[in-house]
Design a protein around this nucleic acid. Structure first.
Lengths: 208, 208
DNA sequence: TAGATTGTTAATCGATTAACAATC
DNA sequence: TAGATTGTTAATCGATTAACAATC
């Protein structure tokens, strides 16, 4: 697939469209216009039509978009039409919460591997997932051909674990540690740091 | 403070600058040039200088920016020069992890209130924080004048709890539930949904 | 058919980048 | 002083919005 011409920012909006379309489907809707979808997503009808038009014409003049079709198409575009296995490193409070997060299996994401360095935790199970020692991380990731890793380790360990993930063949890293990782350009890294988001809010909410 | 003229996207980058400057300070650095900071953050020197210039001239030609000064200034700009109390709703796996997340107190965020609806959980303590019944949410938030709420409840409950937060005077909501909330324009809402981030990655990593 | 809404092109808007005089 | 780097202006780039012919 030559997907070079679609702006990254467009791609990053597609999962939100999908999320809302799924909600609408659950509500029993069958068809939606770009303006109704836009209202729900707090964006504009023009943007939705433009974004979707990068991938084809999924709508019908006069009636809008068939919700089920659009859900299927978006899933295909985003490569969601299969189960993705991910490796999770860190079985502390956050790692354990992620390992048991029902939103993952529900949306096709399987925590296939879980690692920690603490000997008190290694060997136990979190939900149905055994915690392995992080020393086995590289070999396990390679054996299973896993491409996505989730980092839920302390800040001090994050860079080192990320480097090891990359050397094991990981192509995407979701980083929960509050540090800016230094990674090769080729790696798709995204950060989830609630403090950064809260700090942005604090600017706007001000000092009242 | 008239902060109307600074683009939102600039504000959203400031916490990252601050994070990296703090790391640099910890490494013993005293001064940094826009290009060195840019290299660390994977952005450009011009962007950093432009962003900072909205708030004043903090650097020195020839030598760069004094790290400690810049940290202080950024903290003032973002209103981080005080403790922010937040209300957390949801004491499931995720809520409990958040309630005990050391990155919050370390960066001036205090979980002052914690609520849940489950009678088995209400009355217990998570770390040092007592879990109160969500029925008391509005009054407690109002009593303490809390402006920021964190939503860690199941998707089905999220909209209703968010509405109640708003009616209690909350001005910013950090939403962990995988739903698009419908909220008044005046509310600063941000979503943290790891699945949306992973799905964006899946597009780029592809089907190999 | 008349009304609604798409897909797309062109216009606008805003953000990023480049360049450089000022100056430490 | 010479070298480095800022702060800022102007140029470029890219994304969003508006508009409308096509068409269901």
């Amino acid at each position: 697939m030559a997907k070079v011409d679609v702006p990254d920012i467009v791609i990053s909006r597609l999962p939100r469209y999908l999320q809302t379309l799924n909600q609408m489907a659950k509500e029993g809707m069958h068809t939606v216009s770009s303006s109704d979808l836009a209202a729900r997503l707090r964006t504009t009808a023009a943007q939705i039509r433009k974004d979707l038009s990068y991938f084809g014409g999924f709508g019908k003049q006069g009636t809008g978009y068939p919700i089920y079709l659009l859900i299927e198409e978006l899933q295909k575009i985003l490569n969601l039409d299969r189960i993705w296995q991910v490796a999770l490193v860190g079985a502390g409070n956050l790692g354990r919460a992620l390992a048991q997060y029902p939103g993952f299996p529900r949306r096709g994401i399987e925590i296939a591997l879980l690692f920690d360095a603490d000997p008190n935790v290694v060997g136990t199970q979190i939900g149905t997932i055994p915690v392995q020692h992080v020393d086995f991380m590289e070999s396990e990731i390679q054996d299973q051909g896993i491409k996505i890793g989730i980092l839920a380790v302390p800040a001090a360990a994050a860079q080192q674990i990320a480097d090891r993930m990359v050397s094991a063949g990981i192509e995407g890293i979701l980083n929960y540690a509050p540090v800016t990782l230094i990674l090769p350009e080729s790696i798709h890294a995204m950060d989830i740091d609630p403090v950064l988001q809260l700090q942005t809010m604090m600017y706007f909410i001000g000092e009242d």
